[in-house]
């Protein structure tokens, strides 16, 4: 049992890491990753919703009638999204403003609904929680790395903090002669950076 919980957790970190291996949830991936800070913030917010909704769906999986299960899952997810929205508005207001419309959009993020439907509605609480946490952490890592790549190329430096904690600041990583590649933090850069990162992931065999 313990082993399978660990396995459910770790599969989200590499084997089924969204959005690279599991091509879902592209909107926030493309929309918010202008900096590493935003990527991490979005990832953590999604992780919270994933974890909570997975646990609640798993708890209620025997109660919810299968005909209206999708509607019920969406309501459960929407509830936790509102919780996250209000919490971020209260404690991380600048991040909340940066992420803007993408916070309420977690409701329609296919990763969250997909895990509720495909996993939590069929498995126990502990494994569902591990699955939600694993996928969420994987998603956070992906967003953070994509954000870091785009921020580095676009501004030449990395700076920010994680929800007001752990401030980091690396400026002029490529040296002072580096001319920031502004394209990378603009809209077209998001698509191309994600496409090329996906290509890099494909070069590594999945086993």
């Amino acid at each position: 049992m313990a082993k399978s919980i660990v396995a459910e957790f770790t599969k989200g970190l590499w084997k089924e890491i969204p959005p690279f291996r599991l091509v879902l949830g592209l909107c926030p991936t493309l929309g918010v990753t202008t900096s590493m800070k935003n990527g991490i913030g979005m990832g953590l917010a999604t992780t919270f919703v994933l974890l909570c909704s997975n646990i609640l769906v798993s708890l209620l999986r025997k109660v919810i009638p299968s005909k209206v299960r999708i509607a019920c899952f969406i309501i459960i997810i929407a509830t936790f999204v509102i919780v996250v929205e209000q919490m971020m508005a209260a404690y991380a207001y600048t991040l909340f403003m940066d992420l803007g419309v993408f916070i309420p959009l977690i409701v329609v993020n296919c990763i969250v609904l997909g895990r509720a439907e495909a996993f939590a509605s069929k498995n126990g609480i502990a494994t569902s929680a591990a699955d939600g946490l694993g996928i969420g952490v994987g998603f956070t890592l992906s967003l953070a790395s994509l954000g870091a790549v785009r921020e580095l190329l676009g501004t030449g430096s990395l700076k920010g903090d994680i929800f007001g904690f752990l401030p980091y600041h690396f400026s002029n990583i490529f040296g002072s002669s580096f001319e920031p590649f502004g394209f990378a933090v603009q809209a077209p850069g998001a698509f191309i950076a994600l496409g090329l990162m996906l290509c890099a992931m494909n070069l590594i065999p999945s086993k």
């Binding site: 077209p188 996906l198 890099a200 494909n202």
Partner: peptide, 22 residues
């Protein structure tokens, strides 16, 4: 090229399309 196939090349193409809308 093999690693670029499917989603990867689609995303890069979308980037170029996005550039034209830019």
């Amino acid at each position: 090229p093999k690693p670029l196939q499917d989603t990867s090349i689609a995303l890069v193409t979308a980037g170029v399309l996005s550039l034209s809308f830019y």
